[in-house]
């Protein structure tokens, strides 16, 4: 009848949850610069960092996140920051490594809203009983405080056991749900 298919093992929940983690961390990274904001109205940067490379360590000293960007610019007038050529790796304990790349990262409103834009690719490595998974979309809005990642552009997901497209996605990390609009998915039933 219906072969086994595993929509839930597919759900990019854990993966996209990392995005929220990323943006929370990004906020922390740019905060010190924000403190020096002066009152002028022009949208001039007050901080530019080339070949930005940051690592976040866990209590045990092991690396949790690494983030590299070709350039980071901070604007005090609206407390926004722009990162170019974003490359983020997450080494969560007992989780497969996840890599996220995008052309730009924009932190708005002091980081309450983070846009990850341009060829966003989320790649989860395989692990025991966990399939490798790739997610492609054009942009993703992350609201770190609410633990939400959302896009209304097309999302494509691929893994060895199948692929899916959707016309929009919303991940809610607090209640661990994901919504996919107009989803079309194809699964290969595992060998019987």
């Amino acid at each position: 009848m219906i072969g086994v298919f595993r929509p839930t093992s597919w759900l990019p929940l854990g993966v996209l949850a990392l995005l929220v983690g990323l943006t929370l961390w990004l906020n922390a990274l740019v905060q010190p610069a924000a403190a020096k904001a002066d009152g002028n109205l022009r949208h001039d940067p007050d901080l530019i960092v080339e070949n930005f490379n940051a690592r976040k360590l866990g209590e045990d000293g092991r690396v949790l996140y690494t983030l590299t960007a070709r350039k980071m610019v901070h604007y005090p007038d609206d407390d926004s920051s722009l990162l170019e050529t974003l490359n983020f790796d997450a080494y969560q304990p007992k989780q497969p490594r996840v890599n996220i790349t995008a052309e730009r990262g924009r932190l708005q409103k002091g980081g309450d809203e983070v846009w990850i834009e341009g060829n966003v690719v989320v790649h989860r490595e395989p692990a025991p009983r966990v399939e490798p998974l790739k997610i492609f979309t054009d942009n993703l809005l992350v609201l770190p405080d609410e633990g939400i990642a959302r896009t209304s552009s097309e999302v494509r997901m691929e893994s060895p056991s199948g692929h899916a497209t959707a016309a929009g996605l919303e991940l809610n990390n607090t209640d661990r749900t994901v919504k996919l609009n107009r989803v079309r998915s194809t699964y290969k039933p595992p060998a019987r």
Binding site: M1, I2, L11, D175, R176, V178, K179, L180, T186
Partner: peptide
């Protein structure tokens, strides 16, 4: 049929990881 690929289309998929339920 059982060896063939399964295709599912729907207007909305809601996945709830805690309850391990997916609703199309």
């Amino acid at each position: 049929d059982r060896e063939k690929e399964i295709n599912i289309g729907a207007d909305l998929l809601t996945g709830d990881d805690n309850a391990r339920v997916t609703v199309f």
